[in-house]
């Protein structure tokens, strides 16, 4: 035995415990449905609703409009996204000035990306500057964005600034909008399966300090 006082759990015992865990097929199906809905797999959610005989928790049509907004942002079409969000529910942006600012900032970034410098400047002065005065956080974001103009596409730009032009920035904005829409639909922002991965990671790390137990390769579903 190792010097530690870790307990050792044998494989047979551990498997018995796994077997004893109470989880039904229906439970798992609902977790999958939750995932499909939140992640926006509309067709799959429809099929699953039929094949697994489950009713989705939301109107599946709402997935589609959510996905359209996402796509618009990923294309860089911020104006389109804003229109669609307002079509869906005008309160989403009204109630959430930070999100609205973020969208406007994204719009500015897209102008700069396209080299429409004149428009970018006008837009920044008319739309963003007044908001920057209201809120110091907005102001610093605005300053950061405007710095893009100085560096243009120079490779010397500091990462924090160059990052604004990356697809990651679009994704982040799209994620934030998606989360806000989900929230407005009283949906969780994150699929429960994501939470399960996090719990698994936490639990296995914690338990490793206390006990030797059979480790599962979560992705393959097999024990190492």
């Amino acid at each position: 035995m190792p010097p530690s006082n870790k307990s050792h759990i044998r494989k047979e015992e551990w498997e018995r415990r796994l077997h004893d865990v109470h989880i039904s097929r229906n439970d798992l199906n609902r977790l999958v449905m939750d995932y499909l809905v939140i992640e926006g797999y509309k067709t799959a959610a429809e099929e699953f609703s039929r094949e697994a005989d489950l009713s989705p928790s939301v109107d599946l049509e709402s997935i589609e409009s959510r996905m359209n907004i996402r796509e618009a942002l990923q294309r860089g079409d911020v104006a389109e996204a804003i229109t669609r969000v307002n079509d869906l529910n005008p309160e989403i942006l009204d109630m959430n000035p930070a999100l609205y600012f973020r969208l406007q900032q994204q719009k500015l970034i897209e102008f700069i990306r396209q080299g429409r410098i004149q428009e970018a400047l006008e837009f920044a002065q008319e739309e963003l500057a007044p908001r920057g005065e209201e809120n110091p956080e907005f102001l610093s974001e605005l300053e950061k964005t405007m710095a893009l103009l100085a560096f243009e596409s120079s490779p010397l730009a500091p990462p924090a600034i160059a990052e604004l032009l990356s697809p990651g920035q679009r994704l982040k904005t799209a994620s934030a909008v998606n989360a806000a829409i989900l929230e407005s639909l009283s949906q969780a922002k994150e699929a429960k399966l994501v939470g399960m991965l996090k719990l698994m990671s936490w639990g296995a790390s914690m338990l490793e300090e206390k006990a030797d137990f059979p480790k599962l390769d979560v992705i393959e579903g097999t024990f190492n």
Partner: peptide, 12 residues
């Protein structure tokens, strides 16, 4: 694997 994930997490 999804089911195993749940079971393993619960056992942990």
């Amino acid at each position: 694997a999804l089911e195993m994930l749940y079971r393993q997490a619960a056992a942990c």
